[in-house]
């Protein structure tokens, strides 16, 4: 059980003092664990470094000290092929759905690109894409649209299902619904829950909204003044 978790071990992030700025500590000695099939909520008001922590866990940024363990191996000591596996298995979903797709690529293109990356043969792209659209519940027309022609809620669904194509074990959800309307927020949260029960995915849910965190998480922590207080 221990070996398949994604664990953050005493992570700290400080920005070095530069020529014009003084150094700043974003968070210090933060440790938590995400288990598959469970959700760990990360709460805190804006500017507390929640998103930075999320990016560190997803491997997009490096922590100053401490490290992220994936299947027992620290991220910094991974070999190249292990790192590629980690890239696939730990994904991140961002706050702003309008930003999640390249404005100059049609949705269909953006999706088949991911399929090509996974090594799916070209002939099977359309069937795979259709399969994916059924989970999102969107009509086929969206594939020939540009991201700017689709509403935020739909884009967020597409962003999530594009991530799911990679079959990730863990997803870092960086404020997945705070840019959306209440009704769409409800849709996305339900979709996330469905995915979790179906695929046993582990989530790190970052949000400033306590109700969303309580609704979704099995356990959660509050990030305040760079310290993480774990509740439950």
């Amino acid at each position: 059980m221990f070996s398949i978790s994604l664990r953050a071990d005493r992570l700290s992030k400080t920005y070095e003092a530069g020529l014009l700025s003084t150094g700043k500590c974003i968070f210090r000695e933060v440790s938590f664990e995400i288990r598959s099939g469970k959700t760990f909520g990360l709460m805190g008001s804006s500017g507390e470094g929640k998103s930075t922590l999320g990016r560190v866990v997803a491997g997009l940024e490096k922590a100053t000290t401490g490290s992220v363990y994936y299947k027992g191996t620290p991220l910094t000591l991974m070999k190249k092929n292990e790192k590629i596996a980690f890239r696939r298995k730990v994904q991140i979903m961002f706050q702003d759905p309008t930003d999640a797709f390249n404005p100059r690529k049609k949705i269909g293109h953006a999706i088949s690109e991911v399929l090509a990356l996974l090594g799916v043969p070209e002939a099977r792209h359309s069937s795979k894409t259709e399969e994916m659209l059924i989970t999102t519940g969107l009509p086929k027309e969206v594939l020939s649209r540009y991201p700017s022609q689709i509403s935020g809620g739909q884009l967020q669904r597409l962003a999530l299902s594009r991530i799911l194509l990679l079959d990730p074990e863990y997803i870092v959800l960086d404020e997945p619904t705070s840019a959306l309307d209440v009704s769409v927020q409800a849709q996305i949260l339900h979709m996330l829950k469905e995915v979790q029960t179906e695929r046993n995915t582990g989530y790190l849910l970052i949000s400033h909204d306590e109700i969303v965190i309580r609704f979704m998480s099995d356990s959660y922590g509050v990030l305040e003044n760079g310290q993480l207080k774990i509740i439950e």
Partner: peptide, 8 residues
């Protein structure tokens, strides 16, 4: 949220 996020 208070009603439990029942989507339309």
């Amino acid at each position: 949220p208070e009603k439990g996020f029942i989507p339309i």
